[in-house]
Design a protein around this nucleic acid. Sequence first.
DNA 1: GCTATCTTGAACCGATCGTTCCGAGATTTG
DNA 2: CAAATCTCGGAACGATCGGTTCAAGATAGC
Lengths: 217, 217
Amino acid sequence: MGLCGWEGWVSMPDVKHFDADAVLEAVVRIFWRQGVTGTGIQDVVDVTGLSRSSLYATFGGKRRLYLAALERYTEQRSAPSLERLAEDERGLPGVTDFFLSLVDARCSGEHARWGCMISNAHVGAENADADIRAVLERQNDKLRKAMYASLAVARSKGQLNPGVDLEASAEFLALLAHGVNLRSRCGADASELRQGVTAAVAAITAPHGGAGCLRGT
Amino acid sequence: MGLCGWEGWVSMPDVKHFDADAVLEAVVRIFWRQGVTGTGIQDVVDVTGLSRSSLYATFGGKRRLYLAALERYTEQRSAPSLERLAEDERGLPGVTDFFLSLVDARCSGEHARWGCMISNAHVGAENADADIRAVLERQNDKLRKAMYASLAVARSKGQLNPGVDLEASAEFLALLAHGVNLRSRCGADASELRQGVTAAVAAITAPHGGAGCLRGT
DNA sequence: GCTATCTTGAACCGATCGTTCCGAGATTTG
DNA sequence: CAAATCTCGGAACGATCGGTTCAAGATAGC
């Protein structure tokens, strides 16, 4: 913005007096918890500690601010676990781990009952914005593709029930993740959620050593 | 309110000039679409056609108004399909029908892309209210119990995979329904959602005549 | 120190928030 | 018709909304 290199010389009389990254993280947290309509600029001012003018000079406005926070969330919070899932070489155990750690993250620790910022954005008025909706759609694609990758590994390892459709099951597991995120906002028991996701993974598991196929007892 | 029968006589000079039920239905629709934080009293005035004073005299305030709308939604929109599911005697076909008609209702027709008012309320700031949260929890219980009932029928008919846990699977299908509701708000394809829910039901289906269990070809 | 640039807090803008109040008009009873 | 009572439209309440402006303070290079 200031150092656009006009013709050789440029002055830099002052620098930002705050850590823009730390500020954005605080913004993520409040939008994550309260949503965009539930959060006022004053709230953002309060949690970041900087002034309205600095906020607007740096980010531009509520819409741009939320968009920046949403992108940061996807990169820092969502993408890592999705990549871990997509690159997991274990198959179904990777899927199970994904869901169990999801339940943990949603029900305990610092962000308990906050849900997922992506899932939350599906419901709020923010989904009317095309740019925001594009982020949500892109992230949902990532989730589904990560699920598909792990399911494909599971198939190659013979962990999957023969009748399981990879594409459709990836979709259904993605929907399940959204359901977990949503229910966690209302204080759902972690054990209940664990039961649910465990049952879902068990349902697509091949009837080898696990449950199922026991006939006499 | 007016006819509390003091001492034999009571006056009734005027009656309400509007259909309270029709008004509440309009309130349901706007809260359903926009949520509680996204809807102003002015919006309610606009869609109902009556004035602020009548609104407050009849319902009491925004909180009470939303609560009344939420209860009406559960009775008129949610409960019927849940009861149909719970009393369905077909087993898994009943579950499939529930999900397919859910997808239809969420993706087409008058209320397309509105999601479910119950699911939506999980995300909004309204879930901080104890009374509202009680409604959400009660309704989620109904959903899970209805699923359980249909799964129990399915088991008795031998439609279920032997390893399927009724309780846990009811939970997982309830989560799936929330996922469908949530994704529909972002414009998810009906065909995608149908694929997902179909795969979920297929996963718990016994390997009889359907998919699965085909060994040679 | 001087100057240029950026940061920042405070004030202000029009609009909207949820809520309250009152007068005018409608309606039922005697 | 007259009296009593309720309804309801509209104005107005104070507070907060998102957004802008501006002068004073801080910081850099000269």
